[in-house]
């Protein structure tokens, strides 16, 4: 149970960083923390005490395996996360090029 609580704390740390920091790179880092805590949660729900890797190898008789589906889900989610991060960072660089700053207080051309 303690691992799930730690996982949730990691989520909250990410949320705190996302809400309080003013540097857009730090906001992206906070967002990554949130996503990583979710990946960790997904891996944890598939874990079975004493389970082995779900690979069929000739000659080895496996009694109990961990749930492979959450692992596949996490891999997919990591790939999606990679695309999102690449998009965010390239936007951040473009923003720096236009505004010459990473500070969200200076990036304010939209209002209303």
């Amino acid at each position: 149970m303690i691992v799930f609580i730690l996982c949730f704390i990691l989520f909250l740390v990410g949320l705190f960083g996302l809400l309080t920091s003013r540097n857009i790179i730090k906001i992206i880092i906070g967002l990554s923390f949130m996503e990583f805590s979710v990946y960790l949660f997904l891996v944890l729900i598939g874990y079975i005490e004493g389970g082995q890797a779900p690979i069929v190898v000739k000659g080895i008789d496996i009694q109990m395996i961990v749930d492979p589906l959450p692992q596949a889900m996490v891999l997919t989610a990591i790939v999606i996360g990679l695309a999102t991060k690449a998009m965010l960072l390239s936007t951040a660089i473009r923003i720096y090029k236009k505004f010459r700053s990473f500070d969200i207080r200076k990036i304010r051309s939209l209002k209303g």
Binding site: A86, L89, S90, I93, R94, Y96, K97
Partner: peptide, 13 residues
């Protein structure tokens, strides 16, 4: 592609 795009942006800046 992602890496090269980021390098190119950095060179531009």
């Amino acid at each position: 592609t992602i890496f090269l795009a980021l390098v190119i942006y950095k060179e531009e800046i």
